[in-house]
């Protein structure tokens, strides 16, 4: 399993775009928002937290279909399914690798982009905390969606349709943490709920995703 993890990281690094693509997309979303909404700093500081969450979510979505599709195409997935690695573990590792290559960089640059959007100073800590807690759920849910659509020809569009509704609770609580943080309110409740969703997702979805992968490999 450790071998699988390092291989995935290495593939993301070598193929290029593993880290960069999501980040560039995130930056583009954040650049386009003021262009669409107007440069008014007050307005921007009000919507900054939400925009950053939405941008992170979309950037995450962008790379989801790579989680299993590449291994599916070259037959690796089939061979891995006959290896001693349990599929549940495989899904978990894949989601972890996706989080490291996509989620963590997003969390790291979010404060910088927050500066572009006039995020209030009190908001930075909770924005980062919320993203840090919430993005693993995005990767795990995404891995489930990727497992569902792995064998399909027009899978990536369907993948968005399937995954985005599942992102709703995470988005709501995550953005709420950032919003309340920016407004200087108490963030404990949404932060705990967000953590709960992430932990629940990490605990249960690997099994669902592995079941679905088995079906798709038949």
């Amino acid at each position: 399993m450790r071998a699988l993890f390092w291989r995935d990281i290495m593939l993301a690094l070598r193929a290029g775009g593993g880290f960069g693509l999501g980040l560039a997309f995130f930056l583009i979303v954040v650049t386009l928002v003021p262009l669409a909404l107007g440069p008014n700093p007050e307005l921007l500081s009000r919507v900054a937290a939400g925009i950053l969450w939405l941008g992170a979510l979309l950037a995450c979505l962008l790379s989801l279909d790579r989680i299993f599709a590449l291994d599916w195409e070259d037959g690796t997935l089939e061979l891995l399914a006959t290896s001693p690695v349990p599929l549940e573990g495989l899904v978990g590792i894949k989601a972890l690798a996706h989080w490291i290559t996509t989620g963590v960089p997003l969390v790291c640059v979010a404060p910088v982009l927050g500066g572009l959007l006039n995020l209030p100073a009190s908001g930075y800590l909770w924005l980062v905390a919320g993203l840090f807690v919430g993005t693993p759920a995005l990767s795990m849910i995404g891995a489930f969606g990727a497992a569902l659509t792995v064998g399909l020809k027009r899978g990536s569009l369907l993948l968005s349709l399937l995954v985005l509704p599942l992102y709703v609770p995470t988005l709501i609580f995550g953005a709420e943490v950032a919003r309340r943080g920016a407004a200087g309110l108490d963030v404990q409740t949404p932060l705990l709920l967000l953590t709960g969703i992430t932990l629940g997702t990490l605990a249960c979805l690997p099994f669902a995703a592995a079941a679905v992968l088995r079906v798709n490999l038949r």
């Binding site: 450790r2 071998a3 699988l4 291989r7 290495m10 593939l11 070598r14 193929a15 291994d71 070259d74 037959g75 690796t76 997935l77 089939e78 061979l79 891995l80 006959t82 290896s83 001693p84 690695v85």
Partner: peptide, 27 residues
Amino acid sequence: LAYAAHSDGIKATLTVTENLTFWAQTF
């Protein structure tokens, strides 16, 4: 059982050693 399918599950960006080592570690 060890199974070899039509496709070999080889990653183009990894070297021969890296590819094989990955599978060895998997087993």
